[in-house]
Design a protein around this nucleic acid. Structure first.
Length: 256
DNA sequence: ATGGCTTATTGTATAAGA
């Protein structure tokens, strides 16, 4: 079973890239973030044509998450239980007996901003909710744009980023707390090239110079750890004309 | 160098992303 996550930075703009990527990679499940469109604009028909069922939770301009699947999608839920949030950042469903949770975690803007405070609250609520979800669904995968680079090796220039979002100690502590729930960073279960990143700034020729961060992740629960076969980041869509600033992150699970 | 790009908005500049 091939699972993937990709922040597309506007599905309206990126749909051709997504369709090409689905055709070339044939994932069983692809989670999307930053669709930036209302449900009424979501391209259900084009995705169905490509062989994918889809569920979406979107809004105009900002945020928006979706799960695409070649298989039946059941038990869909939107958002975090008992947490009022106007921002569409979470969508979940069960596919092939695995609980898929697709998240677009808050960016936070800067560590001294209200948005950062919201990020901290949001991560706290996510943690509490996931503790319950893991009891309900031992086989769980948490995929998405976390907006957290967990370690210095996930940042192209740790010294330059001290004091910035994505790498602050409080954000990293939240990431570690997720791992303490019994989740595993699937990318790090396998040997990876140094300076492996999933996002590169559009500016300053960030991609060509590999000035990136690894902030998109696929965490798997204890019950799925031994099923992980391989994990990688597919940089190829980042090289296309008018790309998303994020690349797809991929995990292969065996069938057991 | 507080910028550097890209996207969306009922725009002609601003906000947000990371």
């Amino acid at each position: 079973m091939k699972l993937a996550t990709w922040n597309v930075n506007s599905l309206n703009v990126r749909l051709p890239h997504v369709l090409d990527w689905l055709r070339d990679n044939v994932p069983d499940v692809l989670c999307l973030q930053e669709t930036k469109q209302e449900d009424s604009k979501f391209p259900y028909a084009a995705l169905k044509e490509a062989g994918y069922n889809a569920i979406h939770s979107g809004q105009k301009t900002y945020n928006g998450v979706a799960i695409l699947s070649r298989h039946e999608i059941t038990e869909l839920t939107f958002g975090i239980a008992n947490f009022e949030d106007e921002q569409k950042r979470v969508i979940s469903a069960t596919i092939n007996g695995i609980r898929i949770v697709c998240v677009y975690i808050v960016n936070g803007q800067s560590v001294d901003s209200d948005k950062y405070d919201y990020k901290m609250r949001w991560l706290e609520v996510l943690h509490t909710w996931l503790a319950d979800e893991l009891k309900k669904y031992p086989k769980l995968v948490l995929l998405g744009d976390y907006n957290i680079a967990p370690e210095d090796r996930d940042c192209h220039d740790p010294a330059a980023w001290v004091g910035e979002i994505l790498v602050s100690p409080a954000e990293r502590a939240h990431f570690q707390k997720l791992l303490q729930l019994g989740l595993h960073d699937s990318f790090r279960l396998f040997e990876q090239a140094e300076k492996s990143f999933s996002w590169w700034d559009y500016r300053m020729m960030g991609f060509r110079r590999n000035l990136g961060m690894r902030i998109d992740h696929i965490l798997v629960s204890d019950a799925l750890k031994s099923a992980c076969q391989s994990a990688h980041i597919d940089k190829s869509p980042r090289q296309l004309e008018r790309p998303s600033d994020h690349a797809p992150v991929v995990l292969i699970l065996d069938k057991s």
